[in-house]
């Protein structure tokens, strides 16, 4: 009986994915894509992955939504102009493009169909059994935390998590390189609306507290550094939108410290472990819980700072590029 929920959810997800690519207008496809994210968040819950669901909900409803809305504003200016001029919709899929040849499209369609069959077969035939569940459970007492997902993220596979923070930082640096000018400006306009200011001032501590709660609860149940990081990053985005751009106000060294604290402390810890005769990221079991909490907090702060900086940069992108010097 409960399989019915899954079937409806799966159909909804596929339909939303298809429509967000086929919709003629850009704003349609962006908002259908938000809905796709929410459908996916419900799917994670049905599969028992509550950690993933929290991350997906925070990312899809919050961070990606803000990024895409911001980008949509830039592109939709030309969208309305073109609508008035030619009535031809630029954002249509190439299927509607009359002068593109039919042969490549046929080949692509056939290839995709074949690929679909092969991948359906592949996921259907995947053998049961195996997996690392028992191993992860067995090592749990030595890991310092009680929730297996957190144990995998910050103890067994800490190397992955460390590099992953590095990847986010690299993404930020690449965005700096693409932007190519002074990136943190003082606010152009402060919030005029008293209610909007109150909403921002109310939700900032709520987001902070709930993020801290998720970080702490990650030790025993679903939650952890990434979920907290996205919520704390949402604080930065809210403040930026409200005309208090945190990154323009704080001094440069603090900015750099916030961005690199997670990566740096992880690395320092790794070197200390090697100096103490352990392998890289092999926590001594006696201190593991305490060290993991510190590492998680710093990683969450760094990722939140990076997400805020990414949004701030993208948001200030449309201003006319006349200065060329960059600072990080």
């Amino acid at each position: 009986m409960s399989v019915l929920i899954d079937i409806i959810l799966a159909i909804l997800a596929i339909y939303l994915a298809l429509q967000s690519l086929l919709a003629p207008r850009l704003s349609q496809s962006v908002f259908l894509f938000f809905a796709f994210g929410l459908a996916l968040a419900l799917a994670w819950i049905r599969l028992g992955a509550v950690d993933v669901a929290i991350t997906e909900a925070a990312i899809a409803a919050g961070f990606l939504g803000a990024l895409f809305l911001d980008a949509l504003r830039d592109f939709s200016v030309s969208d309305t102009e073109k609508q008035e001029n030619t009535k031809a919709d630029q954002s249509l899929v190439s299927a509607k493009n009359t002068n593109s040849p039919w042969l490549p499209r046929l080949a692509l369609g056939l290839g995709l169909g074949l690929f679909l069959l092969i991948s359906l077969e592949a996921v259907w035939e995947i053998p049961s059994g195996g997996g690392l569940t028992e191993l992860a459970e067995a090592m749990l007492p030595a890991s310092g935390v009680e929730h297996p997902v957190t144990a995998v993220l910050l103890n067994y596979r800490a190397y992955d998590t460390w590099l992953e923070i590095g990847v986010i930082l690299m993404g930020l640096l690449a965005i700096f390189a693409v932007g190519g000018r002074e990136l943190y400006r003082k606010p152009v306009m402060a919030v005029q609306d008293p209610l909007l200011r109150q909403v921002i001032l109310f939700f900032t501590p709520v987001l902070f507290l709930f993020g801290a709660f998720l970080l702490y609860v990650g030790k025993t149940g679903p939650g952890g550094a990434f979920q907290a990081a996205v919520l704390w990053g949402a604080i930065g985005i809210l403040l930026h939108l409200g005309g208090w751009p945190v990154f323009a106000v704080i001094p440069r060294w603090l900015r750099q410290l916030l961005l690199t604290a997670g990566l740096g402390f992880f690395l320092l810890l790794g070197f200390l472990f090697i100096a103490g005769g352990n392998a890289l990221f092999e926590y001594p079991p006696a201190y593991a819980g305490f060290l993991i909490l510190i590492v998680e907090t710093l990683a969450a702060i760094s990722i939140a700072a990076a997400l805020t900086a990414i949004f701030a940069n993208l948001n200030q992108m449309k201003e006319t590029p006349n200065e060329t010097e960059t600072t990080t």
Binding site: V52, T55, L67, F68, A136, V152, Y156, V167, G171, M317
Partner: peptide, 24 residues
């Protein structure tokens, strides 16, 4: 199995960072 869950969590965050770069 907690290992794929952890992989997916890191994967989502990396996918978002790369999407942000692509948008830029």
């Amino acid at each position: 199995d907690p290992v794929p869950h952890a992989l997916v969590i890191t994967g989502i965050v990396v996918a978002v960072a790369s999407a942000a770069f692509a948008l830029a």
